[in-house]
Design a protein around this nucleic acid. Structure first.
Lengths: 210, 210
DNA sequence: AATCAAAAGTTAGTGAGGCTAACTTTTTCA
DNA sequence: TGAAAAAGTTAGCCTCACTAACTTTTGATT
C-alpha cells in the first residue's frame, strides 16, 4: 500500500502512524476555511486525522501554535503571489501597482478565513516573534516593488508611505468584501473599477503629473 | 435603598431583581471591551450581574442575540458621532470629510472590540435582518453628508461612490490600527497626516480642480 | 383581598471542547 | 539487545452554552 495518503512515505523519518504533524496542520487549515477560524475545533481536526484528541499535544504546545504555523505559511504564500503578479505586469508600471492590490484582495476573497486569521487580532498569534518576523519579511518584499515603481517614475516620494496608503486601501476593501459589508449598502459596486481608480488617485504621479 | 444600582427603579416595570436584561447587555459590553468578542463568556457576564448562568435565557434566545443588540446600538452611536463631527466642522467642507474619517477611525480605536464585532464576520449577527436594517440606516445618514459635500462643490460625482472610497480607506486604516499591523511594519507612521492626505486624494475636487 | 397564571429566577444535568496525567506501544541507537 | 525517547492512547478535569424541571415573585382579574 504505497499509495497511502499521508504525505510521501519517503518523508516519514521518525513516525508511528504517518506524519501527524503535517496531517494536523492540513486538517486545521481545511476546517478553518470551511468553518472560520473562530469556529473550528481541534477535536474535529483530530477526527479527520483519525487520532485521539490528546495526540496533538505531542506535536504542538496548544491550539494556537498550529494557527501560528498556518499564518506564517500564508504570509509567505501571499508575498509570492504579489511579487509574481507584479512581474507579470512589468515592475515599475502603474498597472503593476493595480495588480498588486488586486492580488491582495484576491487572496482575501479566495481564502477569507485564512486572511482573517492573518490580519485579525489574536494576541497569542500576533505577539509571537516568529509571526512578526515573517510578516515584516513579506511586507519588505512588497515594498521593494513599490520602490521600483518610484524609481521608474522619478518620484522622490517615500516608497514606504506610498505602500502604506495602498495597503490601507486594499486592506479596507478586502475586509469589507469578505465580511460582506458592501453587499448591504452598495450592492452594485464595481470592485475592479474602484480599485483601479483609487490606486491611481493614491499614487503620487499618476493623478498629479503624467 | 433608592440609590440601588440597577437602572432607575422607576423604570422597573415587571421585574424580580432589577432590570436584568439591561444589566446583562451592559456586562457583556464591558466584557467584550475587556477581553474581545471571541473570548468573552456569557457565564462571566452572569457572574457580574450576580445571577445564575441559566438566567439569561429568560431574556434572550442565545448568546448571539445579546451581541446583535449591542451591534445595533453601536451602529447608531457611530452614526451620531459622525454626523455631529461633520456639523462641528461645517457640512460641505473638505475638513468635514476628513473629520468624518477621523470619527470612524476614532470610534474603532476607542472601542476596538466593539468595532470588530460590528464589522467582523459572525453569520448569525450579519444575517439578522434588524442588524442589516440598522447598518443601512446609519450608512444612509453618512452618505447624506457626503452628498451635501458634493452639492456644495458643484460635483457631478456620485456621492455613493465617493462615500464608498472614503469608507474603504478609513475602514482599512481602522482595521490595521486596532489589529496592530502598522506597528510591526511602519511604526513611525503619522496617522493624521496619512488620513488627511488620502482623503483629499480620494475626493474628486480637492486634488484635481480647485 | 385572594387567587392563580405568567414572568423571572434557581439547581442540576448534558454534551462539547481544551488540555493534562498517566499509561502503552513503537522506534531509535548505543 | 535493551533502555530511553517519541508518538500514541484512555480517562479525567474544568469551563462553557444551553435545556429541563422546579420555585418564587408579581400583578391582573375576579
Amino acid at each position: 500500500m504505497q499509495s497511502d495518503d499521508k504525505t510521501d512515505p519517503a518523508n516519514r523519518t521518525s513516525y508511528h502512524h504517518g506524519d501527524l504533524r503535517e496531517a494536523l496542520i492540513g486538517a486545521v487549515q481545511q476546517l478553518i476555511e470551511e468553518d472560520g477560524a473562530e469556529n473550528f475545533s481541534l477535536a474535529d481536526a483530530c477526527r479527520r486525522a483519525k487520532v485521539s484528541t490528546a495526540a496533538p499535544y505531542k506535536h504542538f504546545k496548544d491550539r494556537d501554535e498550529i494557527l501560528e504555523i498556518i499564518v506564517m505559511r500564508a504570509f509567505d504564500e501571499m508575498a509570492d503571489h504579489a511579487v509574481a503578479e507584479i512581474e507579470k505586469h512589468g515592475p515599475g508600471t502603474t498597472e503593476s501597482m493595480v495588480a498588486l492590490g488586486k492580488s491582495y484582495v484576491g487572496f482575501a476573497t479566495t481564502r477569507p478565513a485564512l486572511f482573517r486569521l492573518m490580519f485579525g487580532q489574536n494576541p497569542k498569534i500576533n505577539q509571537a516573534g516568529d509571526v512578526q518576523d515573517e510578516g515584516r519579511r513579506c511586507f519588505g518584499r512588497v515594498i521593494e516593488q513599490v520602490a521600483i515603481y518610484c524609481r521608474s517614475n522619478n518620484l522622490e516620494a517615500d516608497a514606504l508611505n506610498i505602500a502604506t496608503r495602498l495597503w490601507t486601501f486594499v486592506h479596507g476593501m478586502a475586509s469589507l468584501i469578505i465580511d460582506e459589508k458592501y453587499q448591504n449598502v452598495v450592492p452594485d459596486l464595481d470592485l475592479d473599477v474602484m480599485l483601479a481608480e483609487a490606486t491611481t488617485d493614491l499614487l503620487p504621479t499618476a493623478s498629479k503629473e503624467v
